[in-house]
Write a protein that binds this DNA or RNA. Structure first.
Lengths: 114, 114
DNA sequence: CGTATATTCAACTCATCGGTTTATCAACCA
DNA sequence: TGGTTGATAAACCGATGAGTTGAATATACG
């Protein structure tokens, strides 16, 4: 299951710890220990998260002495952005064609806060 | 775990069956049976998927006699598109500032195929 | 060589997920 | 009322995920 790239990237991003790791990496490359420092979990757990991120193609790891520098790889995110945006446009179109009609009927303006 | 909305939406989209359901819903509202028809799994499984999508705010279900019409709710996807795009820009900036420099040094053009 | 540091591997636990089957609920219809 | 259809609920199963602890690996340093 979840062998397709899109699923893999979505699943990788569905974890707040991993997203925090990525956010941290946006500030620059970092080693595993550096990445693990701010989190209340073990270094091993972070190492596993990094495996997930690497398999999703969101980071690359380069070996440097006994350190593993982690670096962001924006390519999959670009793919994902396209995916999301394509569907978003498709769905909002749908919303307009079919639901505009309904919304006009009931004069609705109750946009859910979400 | 995964109580935050972003994680919930990402997790909901990390399943190909659920994405297919959403794609189908982009063509118009549908009942549970209609949605389940093209899939090789039971109606109950699809009903569970719809629960996940509903909890993520990606669909709404309206009761209509004994049928439950499902309709897309584009709002969370808009939120997600913003999230992805924000990070994508941030990361590509990072890529430019720090790695442009490195890439220039080694005259690299080996963009990974991905 | 031996030791300290950085990281991963292995084995295990516990919770969640996607699926099943069976049963239940709700609404229509005859 | 009883039967049929649409959909969900409940209980279960196997696989996966996120976490742990403990051991192994690899590299630098003395």
């Amino acid at each position: 299951m979840t062998t397709d790239p899109v699923s893999t990237v979505f699943a990788a991003l569905a974890d707040p710890t991993r997203r925090a790791i990525l956010a941290r990496l946006a500030a620059g490359e970092a080693t595993v220990n550096e990445l693990a420092a701010p989190f209340p979990v073990s270094v091993q757990a972070i190492s596993k998260h990094l495996n997930v991120l690497e398999r999703a193609g969101l980071i690359v790891r380069t070996r440097e002495a006994q350190w593993r520098r982690c670096r962001l790889e924006p390519a999959p995110l670009r793919t994902l952005a396209e995916w999301v945006d394509q569907y978003r446009r498709l769905w909002e179109d749908r919303y307009d064609t079919l639901d505009d009609y309904l919304n006009d009927l009931k004069g609705k303006d109750d946009e859910p806060a979400q």
